[in-house]
Every structure is written in structure tokens, then in C-alpha cells.
Amino acid sequence: MAANRPIRVLAVTAAYPTPGSHKGAFLQSEVEGLREAGVDVQVLHLQGKSKYVKGVQTVRATAKDYDIIHGHYSFCGAVARAQHARPCVITFWGSDVLRNPVLPDTRQGQFSRRISPALARRAEAVIVPSEEMARALPGAQITVVELGVNFAAFKPIAQAEARQRLGLNPDLNHRYLLFANSPSIPVKGWPIAEAATQLMQANGAPVELVAVTGRPHDEVILYMNACDVLVLPSYWEGGPYVVKEAMACNLPIVATDVGDVRRVTAKTQGCYIAERTAEDFADKLWRSLHGPRRTTGRQDIAHLSRENATRRVISVYEHVLAHEQR
């Protein structure tokens, strides 16, 4: 690589935001962070029929235009590794390595988990967001990089202002419980959140449960500042990004003990781990609502900033390129 020129990266992914869909928004945030740090990142978004075959063709035809080919998730990692003109970095994100014990095990999921360890060993470097995933990929050159939060975007806003901009009830005695997932996804536990809310309402609590999914980031940020508690009754999560976003907005959280939630929220007053029952969620929500309206979450997860994550990803790139030049 020529001196004094940015590292050029081709990011290969099948999950990236498009008009009407925010799937892969966390990856878009990573790409934005890398670009802000001076890395020249181009995104190859694989879509449609035969997307992986077409992806292999594109990667093989253009690999020499880049310094690194970076595949995200196992299948796109295979696409990235389908060439040997440039070093390959693969980020595995969760269910491509670890089985979700709640959802039915599909043939695609089984195949993904079967190929991931071999793919990892064939890449020049591997990035994963957790130590648990690292342990599942023996023999690979692994760096653990927790997904960073964009603190410039996810930040505290006055609750009254956020409610006014969303057209919500301006009375701050009316408490909003935020369910920031789709109620139609069974693993997210909507029935528990709904039943807990009904229990609280039956006991006279002025609470309202709102589901927010598929909305633009700007709107999600407003909801995190307008609402009083994030409710996460999931049956399984890897490292739920929404929890870190809520922490960055100083929003109290009540969640099940899934993924890294306990570790991320452990130091923060106003955040609670609940059993997966409506009764315990109602109890923990009640406690949270009777504590401070906002938390110290933002300062408690300062180490999880997007800037820190970006620096670690760049260090992986630099290490790979230094090895290639020996």
C-alpha cells in the first residue's frame, strides 16, 4: 500500500439499510465511523436472487482495487474469501457462529455455523463482538471488538422536547414504556411486556407501552428520550445494540438476563434484570419508574463509543497489511 493514502476497504454484506428497511443499521454505523477516521470504505450490498454468486464475481473482478476485503457474517465472509488477491477480514456477528436456542434451527443456520470455523481459519483476521463467539472459533486470528455506539447521534434530549416533537402526551406523569423491537418476532417477548404493562395499569399506574420498530434513527433517538424505560423481555440476544443506544441516552432499562445486558448495565442505577414473567417485569418496571428519571448510562459505557470500536477495527486492518508487506 502506498504511503500517505487511506486504507481502501471493500465491505461485503447482505444486511445494509435501504429505503423502508433499517436492517443492518449497526453495520452502517461502523462504516460511517471508519470513513470519519479516514478509511476509504466502499460497500458491496448483496441483494436479490443469486446474490452470493454475483458477489463472488464482483469481488474477484474488483479485489485489486482495494487493500482489504471485509466480509460481514459467514456467507459474505465466504464471498470475501473467494479471492486471494487481497487479504480477507471476516466479522461474525452472532447466529452465524452461535445457535439461537429459542428459534427453530434452520438448515441455513446449521450450514452457516458449520462453515464458520473453517472460514475463520482461512481469513487473515477475524473480528467478533464477544468472547463467547471467540471461543467458538478455535485456531483463528481473532480480535474482540464490541459494537460501538454513535454518541454524537444517541444523546440525551430534554424529555418534554422529545415528546413534543413526537406528538406524545406532554404530561410527564404519564409514563411511556419503550419496546424497541417488532412485536411480531416471538424471541423479543412482546407478550411479557404487554402483560406487565396491563398488570401495572390494573394497579393504577399511568403507564403506556409503545412499540417502535423500523423507524429512522433520528426518530428512535427521540423515543429513547421521550420514554421512561426501555423494556427488553427477550428470550435470547447476542449483544443487543438497542441496550447500548438506550444507555447512551441515559434511559432506564428493564431486561432479561440475555447476551451482555447484565454486564453493560451492572453499574447503572435505574437498570434492572428481570425474570421472564409479567409479574417480575411489572415489579422491576415499578422500581425503575420510582427511581431517577434518567440514568448515568452514558458515562458508564463511555468505553463503548464508536470511536473506540473504530480504532480497534483499524488496528486489525493495519496489522493485516503490515503482515502482508513482510
Score class of each variant (00 low, 15 high):
G71R: 01
R163E: 08
G291D: 13
T91C: 03
I301D: 04
Q110H: 05
N203Q: 15
V97H: 05
A3P: 11
I253A: 05
A14W: 05
A118S: 15
A134W: 09
G94K: 07
R135L: 15
V41T: 08
Y317E: 06
A211V: 09
A153H: 14
D260L: 14
S116L: 07
A278H: 10
R287C: 13
A78G: 08
T295R: 14
V79T: 00
S184T: 13
A25Y: 02
I115S: 08
E131W: 07
N250C: 09
R81D: 06
L172Q: 12
V229R: 08
P19S: 03
P206R: 08
P191C: 08
V210N: 04
V243S: 04
T310D: 00
V264H: 03
E131S: 10
E208W: 13
A322Y: 06
L166I: 10
A193F: 06
G94L: 11
A63I: 00
P216T: 04
T13Y: 02
A80S: 01
I142F: 05
G238Q: 15
H323S: 14
P216V: 03
P216Q: 05
P104R: 03
E275C: 13
H22K: 15
T310N: 01
L321W: 04
L147D: 12
S305D: 06
V210K: 09
V9G: 07
P252D: 06
E124F: 04
V126T: 07
L304H: 04
E245N: 03
F281A: 05
L103S: 14
N150E: 13
N203I: 07
N225M: 08
A226V: 09
A152M: 10
D67V: 01
M224L: 12
A302L: 11
P104A: 03
G204M: 13
G24M: 06
